[in-house]
Design a protein around this nucleic acid. Sequence first.
DNA 1: GCATTAAATCAAAAAAAGTTGATTTAATAG
DNA 2: CTATTAAATCAACTTTTTTTGATTTAATGC
Lengths: 108, 108
Amino acid sequence: MVQGEIPLTDISLDSTFEKYELKFKAIADKKRLQIMNILTQKGAMCVCDLAPLVDMAQSKLSYHLKILLDANIITKETRGTWSYYELNHKVLNHLLSPELCCLFKPTC
Amino acid sequence: MVQGEIPLTDISLDSTFEKYELKFKAIADKKRLQIMNILTQKGAMCVCDLAPLVDMAQSKLSYHLKILLDANIITKETRGTWSYYELNHKVLNHLLSPELCCLFKPTC
DNA sequence: GCATTAAATCAAAAAAAGTTGATTTAATAG
DNA sequence: CTATTAAATCAACTTTTTTTGATTTAATGC
Protein backbone atom coordinates (compact mmCIF):
# COMPACT_ATOMS: atom_id res chain seq x y z
CA MET A 1 0.00 0.00 0.00
CA VAL A 2 1.21 3.48 -0.93
CA GLN A 3 2.08 5.90 1.89
CA GLY A 4 -0.73 8.30 2.66
CA GLU A 5 -3.36 5.77 1.71
CA ILE A 6 -3.35 3.98 5.04
CA PRO A 7 -6.99 3.50 6.06
CA LEU A 8 -6.81 4.85 9.59
CA THR A 9 -10.46 4.08 10.26
CA ASP A 10 -10.04 0.42 9.38
CA ILE A 11 -6.94 0.10 11.53
CA SER A 12 -8.74 1.46 14.57
CA LEU A 13 -11.79 -0.69 13.84
CA ASP A 14 -9.47 -3.66 13.65
CA SER A 15 -8.01 -3.00 17.09
CA THR A 16 -11.53 -2.36 18.37
CA PHE A 17 -12.59 -5.78 17.13
CA GLU A 18 -9.51 -7.34 18.73
CA LYS A 19 -10.37 -5.72 22.03
CA TYR A 20 -13.91 -7.07 21.99
CA GLU A 21 -12.78 -10.47 20.76
CA LEU A 22 -10.76 -10.75 23.97
CA LYS A 23 -13.64 -9.64 26.17
CA PHE A 24 -16.33 -11.73 24.49
CA LYS A 25 -14.06 -14.78 24.47
CA ALA A 26 -13.62 -14.36 28.21
CA ILE A 27 -17.35 -14.46 28.87
CA ALA A 28 -18.10 -17.01 26.10
CA ASP A 29 -17.79 -19.94 28.46
CA LYS A 30 -20.33 -21.67 30.64
CA LYS A 31 -17.92 -22.19 33.52
CA ARG A 32 -16.70 -18.64 33.49
CA LEU A 33 -20.28 -17.34 33.39
CA GLN A 34 -20.94 -19.51 36.43
CA ILE A 35 -17.89 -18.06 38.20
CA MET A 36 -19.16 -14.57 37.39
CA ASN A 37 -22.60 -15.46 38.70
CA ILE A 38 -21.19 -16.69 42.00
CA LEU A 39 -19.08 -13.54 42.35
CA THR A 40 -22.32 -11.63 41.81
CA GLN A 41 -23.90 -13.37 44.77
CA LYS A 42 -20.91 -13.47 47.09
CA GLY A 43 -18.91 -10.34 46.21
CA ALA A 44 -15.14 -10.74 46.50
CA MET A 45 -13.89 -14.31 46.93
CA CYS A 46 -10.58 -16.10 47.16
CA VAL A 47 -9.65 -19.06 44.97
CA CYS A 48 -9.78 -21.59 47.80
CA ASP A 49 -13.36 -20.66 48.75
CA LEU A 50 -14.51 -20.41 45.14
CA ALA A 51 -13.06 -23.76 44.03
CA PRO A 52 -15.52 -26.02 45.91
CA LEU A 53 -18.47 -23.85 44.84
CA VAL A 54 -17.69 -24.30 41.16
CA ASP A 55 -16.40 -27.84 41.66
CA MET A 56 -13.05 -27.17 40.02
CA ALA A 57 -9.46 -28.04 40.82
CA GLN A 58 -7.40 -25.07 41.94
CA SER A 59 -5.18 -24.91 38.86
CA LYS A 60 -8.17 -25.05 36.55
CA LEU A 61 -9.97 -22.31 38.42
CA SER A 62 -6.84 -20.13 38.42
CA TYR A 63 -6.66 -20.64 34.66
CA HIS A 64 -10.23 -19.41 34.13
CA LEU A 65 -9.83 -16.53 36.57
CA LYS A 66 -6.77 -15.38 34.66
CA ILE A 67 -8.75 -15.26 31.42
CA LEU A 68 -11.44 -13.13 33.08
CA LEU A 69 -8.78 -10.96 34.70
CA ASP A 70 -6.87 -10.40 31.45
CA ALA A 71 -10.10 -9.27 29.84
CA ASN A 72 -10.72 -6.93 32.77
CA ILE A 73 -14.03 -8.64 33.53
CA ILE A 74 -12.90 -9.20 37.12
CA THR A 75 -10.35 -7.53 39.40
CA LYS A 76 -7.86 -9.07 41.82
CA GLU A 77 -6.70 -7.89 45.22
CA THR A 78 -4.04 -9.85 47.07
CA ARG A 79 -4.09 -9.84 50.87
CA GLY A 80 -1.46 -12.03 52.47
CA THR A 81 -1.53 -15.45 50.90
CA TRP A 82 -5.02 -14.93 49.53
CA SER A 83 -6.14 -13.41 46.25
CA TYR A 84 -9.62 -11.95 46.23
CA TYR A 85 -11.42 -11.74 42.95
CA GLU A 86 -14.37 -9.47 42.28
CA LEU A 87 -16.60 -8.58 39.32
CA ASN A 88 -15.73 -5.43 37.41
CA HIS A 89 -19.21 -3.99 37.07
CA LYS A 90 -18.06 -0.96 35.14
CA VAL A 91 -16.65 -3.07 32.31
CA LEU A 92 -19.66 -5.40 32.34
CA ASN A 93 -22.06 -2.47 32.14
CA HIS A 94 -20.17 -1.12 29.18
CA LEU A 95 -20.25 -4.51 27.48
CA LEU A 96 -23.67 -6.03 28.11
CA SER A 97 -27.25 -4.89 27.70
CA PRO A 98 -28.94 -3.65 30.89
CA GLU A 99 -31.16 -6.72 30.61
CA LEU A 100 -28.15 -9.04 30.62
CA CYS A 101 -26.30 -7.08 33.26
CA CYS A 102 -29.10 -8.11 35.62
CA LEU A 103 -27.64 -11.61 35.54
CA PHE A 104 -24.68 -10.08 37.33
CA LYS A 105 -26.38 -7.94 39.90
CA PRO A 106 -27.41 -9.35 43.26
CA THR A 107 -30.54 -7.18 43.30
CA CYS A 108 -31.92 -8.46 39.98
CA MET B 1 -28.79 -36.94 43.95
CA VAL B 2 -32.03 -37.95 45.65
CA GLN B 3 -35.30 -37.35 43.79
CA GLY B 4 -37.05 -34.18 44.83
CA GLU B 5 -33.78 -32.43 45.56
CA ILE B 6 -33.15 -31.33 42.00
CA PRO B 7 -32.02 -27.67 42.12
CA LEU B 8 -34.40 -26.21 39.52
CA THR B 9 -32.87 -22.76 39.78
CA ASP B 10 -29.39 -24.04 39.02
CA ILE B 11 -30.62 -26.10 36.10
CA SER B 12 -32.25 -23.10 34.49
CA LEU B 13 -29.22 -20.93 35.21
CA ASP B 14 -27.12 -23.62 33.62
CA SER B 15 -29.13 -23.59 30.41
CA THR B 16 -29.07 -19.78 30.49
CA PHE B 17 -25.28 -19.87 30.63
CA GLU B 18 -25.20 -22.38 27.78
CA LYS B 19 -27.38 -20.11 25.68
CA TYR B 20 -25.12 -17.12 26.23
CA GLU B 21 -21.99 -19.19 25.75
CA LEU B 22 -23.24 -19.92 22.22
CA LYS B 23 -24.04 -16.28 21.51
CA PHE B 24 -20.86 -14.83 22.99
CA LYS B 25 -18.73 -17.43 21.24
CA ALA B 26 -20.31 -16.37 17.96
CA ILE B 27 -19.34 -12.73 18.41
CA ALA B 28 -16.02 -13.50 20.15
CA ASP B 29 -14.08 -13.43 16.93
CA LYS B 30 -12.37 -10.60 15.09
CA LYS B 31 -13.40 -11.85 11.66
CA ARG B 32 -17.00 -12.37 12.63
CA LEU B 33 -17.13 -8.90 14.20
CA GLN B 34 -15.80 -7.55 10.91
CA ILE B 35 -18.51 -9.42 9.00
CA MET B 36 -21.11 -7.96 11.35
CA ASN B 37 -19.68 -4.49 10.85
CA ILE B 38 -19.88 -4.78 7.06
CA LEU B 39 -23.46 -6.04 7.28
CA THR B 40 -24.13 -2.94 9.39
CA GLN B 41 -22.90 -0.70 6.58
CA LYS B 42 -24.32 -2.59 3.63
CA GLY B 43 -27.49 -4.21 4.96
CA ALA B 44 -28.31 -7.62 3.46
CA MET B 45 -25.50 -9.22 1.46
CA CYS B 46 -24.89 -12.48 -0.36
CA VAL B 47 -21.83 -14.63 0.26
CA CYS B 48 -20.26 -13.92 -3.12
CA ASP B 49 -20.36 -10.14 -2.59
CA LEU B 50 -19.25 -10.37 1.02
CA ALA B 51 -16.28 -12.68 0.39
CA PRO B 52 -14.03 -10.14 -1.38
CA LEU B 53 -14.88 -7.46 1.20
CA VAL B 54 -13.67 -9.60 4.08
CA ASP B 55 -10.93 -11.22 2.00
CA MET B 56 -12.04 -14.78 2.71
CA ALA B 57 -12.51 -17.90 0.64
CA GLN B 58 -16.15 -18.88 0.10
CA SER B 59 -16.07 -21.99 2.28
CA LYS B 60 -14.43 -20.14 5.13
CA LEU B 61 -16.95 -17.31 4.97
CA SER B 62 -19.84 -19.80 4.86
CA TYR B 63 -18.39 -21.45 7.97
CA HIS B 64 -18.31 -18.16 9.90
CA LEU B 65 -21.75 -17.12 8.66
CA LYS B 66 -23.16 -20.41 9.89
CA ILE B 67 -21.79 -19.79 13.36
CA LEU B 68 -23.43 -16.35 13.45
CA LEU B 69 -26.64 -17.80 12.02
CA ASP B 70 -26.79 -20.65 14.55
CA ALA B 71 -26.45 -18.09 17.34
CA ASN B 72 -29.23 -16.06 15.76
CA ILE B 73 -26.94 -13.04 15.40
CA ILE B 74 -27.75 -12.84 11.70
CA THR B 75 -30.63 -14.04 9.54
CA LYS B 76 -30.62 -15.69 6.12
CA GLU B 77 -32.97 -15.30 3.18
CA THR B 78 -32.46 -17.38 0.06
CA ARG B 79 -33.51 -15.94 -3.29
CA GLY B 80 -32.71 -18.15 -6.26
CA THR B 81 -29.10 -19.24 -6.07
CA TRP B 82 -28.22 -16.48 -3.66
CA SER B 83 -28.37 -16.38 0.12
CA TYR B 84 -28.71 -12.97 1.67
CA TYR B 85 -27.47 -12.50 5.21
CA GLU B 86 -28.51 -9.64 7.46
CA LEU B 87 -27.86 -8.56 11.04
CA ASN B 88 -30.47 -9.50 13.63
CA HIS B 89 -30.67 -6.20 15.46
CA LYS B 90 -33.26 -7.43 17.94
CA VAL B 91 -30.93 -10.11 19.26
CA LEU B 92 -27.94 -7.76 19.25
CA ASN B 93 -29.87 -5.14 21.19
CA HIS B 94 -30.79 -7.71 23.78
CA LEU B 95 -27.19 -8.83 24.05
CA LEU B 96 -24.99 -5.74 23.91
CA SER B 97 -24.88 -2.42 25.72
CA PRO B 98 -26.43 0.51 23.84
CA GLU B 99 -22.90 1.90 23.61
CA LEU B 100 -21.65 -1.25 21.90
CA CYS B 101 -24.73 -1.64 19.73
CA CYS B 102 -23.63 1.61 18.07
CA LEU B 103 -20.85 -0.36 16.45
CA PHE B 104 -23.60 -2.15 14.59
CA LYS B 105 -25.82 0.71 13.57
CA PRO B 106 -25.17 2.66 10.36
CA THR B 107 -26.27 5.90 12.02
CA CYS B 108 -23.78 5.73 14.90
C1' DG C 1 -30.20 -31.98 -21.68
C1' DC C 2 -25.51 -29.13 -20.50
C1' DA C 3 -22.76 -25.38 -18.62
C1' DT C 4 -22.43 -21.97 -15.19
C1' DT C 5 -22.71 -19.85 -10.83
C1' DA C 6 -23.80 -19.64 -5.68
C1' DA C 7 -23.35 -21.64 -1.54
C1' DA C 8 -23.29 -25.65 1.66
C1' DT C 9 -20.81 -29.49 3.17
C1' DC C 10 -17.02 -32.64 3.89
C1' DA C 11 -12.63 -34.62 5.46
C1' DA C 12 -7.99 -33.77 6.64
C1' DA C 13 -4.81 -30.75 8.69
C1' DA C 14 -3.50 -26.93 11.63
C1' DA C 15 -4.15 -23.94 15.39
C1' DA C 16 -6.14 -22.58 19.67
C1' DA C 17 -8.26 -23.48 24.03
C1' DG C 18 -8.92 -26.26 28.02
C1' DT C 19 -7.54 -30.01 31.36
C1' DT C 20 -4.53 -32.47 34.43
C1' DG C 21 -1.29 -33.31 37.98
C1' DA C 22 3.05 -31.73 39.53
C1' DT C 23 6.04 -28.03 40.73
C1' DT C 24 7.11 -23.37 42.20
C1' DT C 25 6.51 -19.09 44.68
C1' DA C 26 5.35 -16.74 48.52
C1' DA C 27 3.09 -15.60 52.88
C1' DT C 28 2.05 -17.13 57.63
C1' DA C 29 2.39 -19.62 61.95
C1' DG C 30 4.87 -22.37 65.01
C1' DC D 1 14.34 -22.36 60.31
C1' DT D 2 10.46 -25.61 59.26
C1' DA D 3 5.86 -26.80 58.14
C1' DT D 4 1.68 -25.36 56.17
C1' DT D 5 -1.44 -23.18 53.16
C1' DA D 6 -2.81 -20.29 48.97
C1' DA D 7 -2.31 -19.56 44.43
C1' DA D 8 0.38 -19.18 40.08
C1' DT D 9 2.75 -21.59 36.65
C1' DC D 10 4.35 -25.38 33.83
C1' DA D 11 4.48 -29.20 30.53
C1' DA D 12 2.05 -32.94 28.53
C1' DC D 13 -2.15 -34.16 26.92
C1' DT D 14 -7.04 -33.79 25.22
C1' DT D 15 -10.62 -31.39 23.07
C1' DT D 16 -12.52 -27.84 20.32
C1' DT D 17 -12.25 -24.57 16.77
C1' DT D 18 -10.60 -22.94 12.48
C1' DT D 19 -8.62 -23.44 7.91
C1' DT D 20 -8.09 -25.51 3.42
C1' DG D 21 -9.23 -27.40 -0.94
C1' DA D 22 -12.36 -30.50 -3.00
C1' DT D 23 -16.93 -32.11 -3.66
C1' DT D 24 -21.91 -31.75 -3.61
C1' DT D 25 -26.35 -29.54 -4.07
C1' DA D 26 -29.22 -26.62 -6.30
C1' DA D 27 -30.86 -22.80 -9.19
C1' DT D 28 -30.42 -20.34 -13.69
C1' DG D 29 -29.83 -19.67 -18.64
C1' DC D 30 -28.75 -21.61 -23.03
